[in-house]
Write a protein that binds this DNA or RNA. Structure first.
Lengths: 166, 166
DNA sequence: ATTACTGCAAAGCATTTGCAAATGC
DNA sequence: GCATTTGCAAATGCTTTGCAGTAAT
């Protein structure tokens, strides 16, 4: 069972090996530029990231590395993931802001949000066309939508004006 | 300073009073239907919700009610907020799933997500038109986008098939 | 009189952090 | 050799929960 691997697994392994082989040098470049160190732990985390399916959560990954020969501590996993995000190798799906925000719904139809990175302000906007496209996408996937959430992160007009070009 | 209120404040107060006056009976209906009880604490939370600006977070609201004559405990605030969400008076902006999910970015362009309420599966989709509309909306608001996140919640084709009409 | 709701404080959970020891440069 | 990283465990911050007392039906 363990010695015999089917073709699919072999291909997957090959794929992973290739991604790591390509990404690791890029990560090294990133670290060097940042004057950060190229460490064993960082390579292990990067490898583990690429060994996982498309979507994973930090804690699962940390759990996988909690024991065994490639042991990396939880703290380091989180720290490295943050680095990898900065380097552009991973993307966080639910963004970092920990606490949930609420808004009134009473006489307040659905709309989308922009959140300013600098001041945290919420800007509301609406676009029926976006909703139409979402609905179409759901039809294409035979997905039955219940609701959706669209948030654009960036800089609001006030903050981008305040911070003049360096 | 305290006795003299300007016009804007007066109008705002009026607005709030009206919303509460309209929403409270609806919440009562909701509670009755659910065979839940109509309590003082629930009215206080509802009032507080409508007294706040469009966006607020649970904890701030709880803090506001932690002391004073309209004292409601943190636990009750969270419980009532959940009820109000169920009743459709408020909407949560960052959804409930606590832990952040990551995904590879390496050779994996930006795309949107559908998440199945039932099985938790992530479905990826892409729609350049949606992105165009987002960009247009940002231009309209003079908002400088850095990135965005679009998640559609609902039921995937597998799960909606599995659960035949009752 | 029942039974649900509330307050409180304690538990939970994902994530972050402080610090001594280890490692890369 | 010196500075950065790591591991560990403790701290954090938001949210949930258990339970005994309180209030609504």
């Amino acid at each position: 069972m363990k010695t015999i691997k089917n073709l699919k697994d072999k291909l997957l392994e090959e794929e992973i090996r290739k991604s790591v082989e390509e990404a690791w040098p890029l990560f090294i470049d990133f670290l060097k530029e940042k004057k950060a160190r190229v460490t064993q732990a960082r390579k292990i985390v990067l490898t583990q990231v690429f060994s996982r399916h498309d979507h994973f959560c930090a804690d699962d990954l940390a759990a996988a590395l909690a024991t065994g020969p490639n042991h990396v501590s939880r703290g380091t996993v989180y720290r490295t993931l943050a680095l990898m995000e900065e380097a552009g190798f991973v993307r966080v799906i639910r963004d970092t802001d920990v606490h949930a925000h609420y808004e009134h719904t009473y006489k307040h139809p659905h709309h989308e949000h922009m959140v300013c990175d600098a001041c945290g302000d919420f800007i509301e906007f609406e676009d029926p066309k976006i909703i139409q496209h979402i609905e179409q996408a759901c039809r294409d996937e035979a997905f039955i939508p219940r609701t959706h959430r669209l948030v654009v992160f960036g800089k609001c007009s006030k903050c981008s004006k305040a911070q003049k070009p360096a």
